[in-house]
Amino acid sequence: MQNAITINNQQLSVKEYQGKRVVTLRDIDTVHNRPQGTAGRNFRVNKKHFIENEDYYKIQSDEIRLVGLKSPNGGIVVTESGYLMLVKSFTDDLAWEVQRQLVNTYFKQAKLKHKYTDYQRMMIETRTENARIRKAQILTRLAQDYDGTYRQVLQAHATLELTGEYLLPLPKIEKRTYTATEIGDKLGITANKVGILANRNNLKTDEYGAWYNDKAKGCNKEVPTFRYYEDVIPVLERLI
């Protein structure tokens, strides 16, 4: 058998996925002389402990050629970490020897420099692109259920998934501002006192608030008025 490694007198065909050496559940049963289905049962029972894309991969039908699976429907393949987790219950002498062979010969070789074929690179790029498109579609559908800021945020992230950049800008989130009177009420002082402390200590800056044009009392003339962020309160408390 070409491109295979002998483990426990069994020919194990080499399988790699996303640059990692992997084995099927059937491979594990074969090299360990276990009844077919043993590794699969262990996997299902302990699946909550396995991390997808780290301990195992779900291979889709369109990727069978990449891995060398025989099932037309794809299947589960496990990495070195997943394999070692699966065979924890295999404690006989043979199991220890098979583990040593798999780790030292089969998995160790996967750490050598890996070169993708053109077909493999194409499939990886296609899967990555399809994943981005699916995410963008989900975000776009979610955006239809909202209005205003939430819709803008979701639509902006959808363009990021598709293009790698925000073609639609994220909405600017304005911080709440307070009048001098409102700040004074929080501190137990007058609005005039707030203004005096702010002017003396140069607190009317972008860090502590923003300038707005408000209508002056008794006329229609607009005058610049400084409104404060809540961040100014602890500063004023220390100054009082």
Results as ranks from 00 to 15, higher is better:
residue 138 I to M: 10
residue 124 I to E: 08
residue 121 R to Q: 12
residue 171 P to C: 09
residue 107 F to N: 03
residue 123 M to G: 03
residue 146 Y to E: 06
residue 175 K to S: 09
residue 150 Y to N: 06
residue 116 Y to Q: 01
residue 105 T to F: 02
residue 142 L to C: 10
residue 119 Y to R: 04
residue 157 H to T: 05
residue 143 A to K: 10
residue 132 R to Q: 15
residue 171 P to M: 08
residue 175 K to R: 15
residue 148 G to L: 10
residue 146 Y to Q: 09
residue 166 Y to S: 06
residue 174 E to P: 05
residue 118 D to M: 05
residue 108 K to L: 14
residue 137 Q to F: 02
residue 131 A to H: 10
residue 134 R to P: 01
residue 149 T to C: 08
residue 117 T to E: 00
residue 163 T to S: 11
residue 166 Y to F: 15
residue 120 Q to G: 05
residue 164 G to T: 13
residue 129 E to T: 12
residue 113 K to D: 01
residue 150 Y to I: 03
residue 177 T to D: 03
residue 102 L to R: 00
residue 167 L to M: 14
residue 129 E to Q: 14
residue 155 Q to H: 03
residue 112 L to C: 00
residue 111 K to N: 12
residue 129 E to W: 04
residue 165 E to K: 15
residue 113 K to C: 00
residue 145 D to G: 08
residue 143 A to T: 02
residue 127 R to W: 02
residue 104 N to I: 00
residue 124 I to F: 14
residue 126 T to V: 08
residue 153 V to K: 03
residue 177 T to I: 13
residue 153 V to T: 14
residue 139 L to S: 04
residue 127 R to G: 03
residue 149 T to A: 10
residue 111 K to V: 04
residue 170 L to S: 08
residue 162 L to V: 12
residue 103 V to D: 01
residue 152 Q to V: 08
residue 170 L to R: 09
residue 135 K to G: 08
residue 152 Q to H: 10
residue 103 V to F: 02
residue 174 E to Y: 13
residue 132 R to A: 08
residue 161 E to V: 08
residue 138 I to N: 08
residue 133 I to N: 05
residue 141 R to T: 07
residue 139 L to V: 08
residue 155 Q to L: 15
residue 149 T to R: 14
residue 118 D to T: 06
residue 165 E to T: 13
residue 108 K to D: 05
residue 133 I to F: 07
residue 115 K to M: 10
residue 176 R to Q: 09
residue 148 G to N: 11
residue 116 Y to C: 00
residue 176 R to V: 05
residue 164 G to A: 07
residue 133 I to C: 04
residue 153 V to Y: 00
residue 134 R to I: 09
residue 105 T to P: 01
residue 164 G to I: 11
residue 108 K to M: 13
residue 163 T to E: 10
residue 110 A to K: 06
residue 147 D to G: 13
residue 153 V to M: 13
residue 169 P to W: 09
residue 161 E to T: 07
residue 167 L to N: 15
residue 169 P to V: 07
residue 131 A to W: 02
residue 122 M to N: 07
residue 163 T to V: 04
residue 102 L to T: 02
residue 106 Y to C: 04
residue 163 T to L: 06
residue 166 Y to A: 06
residue 131 A to E: 08
residue 103 V to M: 05
residue 171 P to L: 09
residue 163 T to K: 03
residue 127 R to K: 15
residue 113 K to H: 06
residue 127 R to Q: 13
residue 159 T to E: 09
residue 158 A to F: 04
residue 115 K to I: 05
residue 157 H to G: 00
residue 147 D to M: 07
residue 157 H to P: 01
residue 114 H to F: 13
residue 148 G to A: 11
residue 150 Y to A: 04
residue 138 I to D: 04
residue 171 P to R: 06
residue 129 E to N: 12
residue 126 T to E: 11
residue 164 G to E: 05
residue 155 Q to S: 08
residue 109 Q to K: 14
residue 171 P to F: 06
residue 123 M to D: 01
residue 133 I to E: 04
residue 138 I to T: 15
